[in-house]
Nucleic acid binder design. Structure first.
Lengths: 232, 232
DNA sequence: ATTACTAAAAGACGAGTAA
DNA sequence: TTTACTCGTCTTTTAGTAA
């Protein structure tokens, strides 16, 4: 009995990278002239390696080639396109899932008390009421993020924050800021980050309609989890 | 004088693949528990290699880790996210560019003459007029695609073709087909592919409002370029 | 200029092992 | 169980060369 085993093998990472590069050079929409030298430059390898990659891709039937003495013409096959699309859909799953939530973890620390002052100023408070739909308790919750929290917080930078405008009052300037609604436990609150300053990256400041510290019986050095949700 | 050289190096293909896998496991939205064994399984490598990858990613500051004796927690950093997003945008450029055109190249061959018969049948002709906005010349142009053209043609399968419905007439059944508007030179035409049949993959048949063969003074074995454009 | 081979150098892999 | 090291093996890379 003769058995033929067809292995639908996963395409190696380097081959996929090479295939993607060919697609970007135009191989997806028709044949494109690609020298091993030029491909090697784009891949950060030697021309020899680029040549070997092309041979490898052809063996896997991910591209077709017509090789001449002065160069070669390359086209990505339907099968090659499918490999690329599979990769593409992985990235879509990572980034286009707008739903979901991020969790920031850190410890409660004592603030300098100036948060209460700023939050009470009408120029800010009015904006909070209008944009966040709550009148903040005069005081802020300060959290020092753990290393994981710092990284997750940075990623939130690319999401849409609510912009708080700066203004002039009492012969001085009050700077702008940005806010991101979130929750601690079941309590609604918002991360607020001053606009211009070199604010320490491991500290976040939160405002809330209630005195969360009292409501949740929190003390300094307690571990806090802040949840940021995106539903649309 | 002290010079600090910061090399913004391209992330290796394997590392990027590993980073993507971590993201898919949840490392993008917060810390996730990942054993080298489990990661190795998903990457198709040994646990040792997976462990090495994690160490490498950490050195490149693409992830942060908290390693314990019974496992490790991994989070993708902002920098890691940017690497992934850069890769993602490459794929977007490849696939989401709806504008642009595909080129199919092949040689003119003689058909069997039956194209003229089918095109003239009102059941088909009426649909062409309604869906393609032209009354086809009674006859088809048959092209044998070169290897590149075959691959490009296959890719067109995933685009939107115009559906031609089958019907009953004169006590027999006429099958459905699909059409794709295109051009040869400046002449409007459409690729037509029968619905059910195992049509040879290297042959395409074209219909057109005029007798293209005569208009362009074409002869058998002439090389033909068919352009398919997408503008939306 | 190309492509693609061969052969030496470099690097990656996984088994074994310790903590 | 884990992580992550060392070490021998094997693969991959690149330089050189031919066509």
């Amino acid at each position: 009995m003769i058995c033929i085993l067809i292995l639908v093998c996963m395409v190696m990472a380097e081959d996929l990278q090479c295939l993607k590069t060919i697609a970007l050079m135009g191989g997806y929409r028709g044949q494109v002239s690609i020298s091993s030298q030029a491909l090697g430059n784009r891949l950060g390898t030697s021309a020899q390696t680029a040549s070997r990659r092309l041979i490898s891709l052809e063996k896997q039937m991910l591209i077709t080639r017509s090789v001449r003495q002065d160069g070669q013409y390359v086209t990505i096959t339907k099968q090659g396109e499918e490999s690329l699309r599979s990769e593409y859909s992985d990235f879509c799953r990572i980034f286009e899932e707008k739903k979901g939530h991020f969790t920031l973890e850190g410890v409660l620390i004592d603030g300098l008390g100036e948060g209460a002052y700023y939050v009470s100023i009408p120029g800010y408070a009015d904006q909070f009421i209008r944009l966040l739909n709550f009148k903040p308790f005069p005081g802020t919750l300060n959290i020092r993020l753990n290393p994981t929290g710092i990284e997750t917080r940075k990623k939130l930078d690319s999401y849409e924050w609510i912009k708080i405008e700066g203004f002039q009052a009492d012969e001085r300037t009050f700077g702008g800021a940005r806010c991101l609604p979130c929750t601690i436990g079941d309590y609604e609150c918002a991360i607020i980050i001053p606009g211009r300053s070199h604010y320490p990256e491991d500290i976040i400041e939160l405002i809330s309609p209630v005195h969360i510290r009292e409501e949740l019986h929190l003390h300094s050095k307690d571990i806090i989890k802040v949840e940021v949700r995106f539903n649309d």
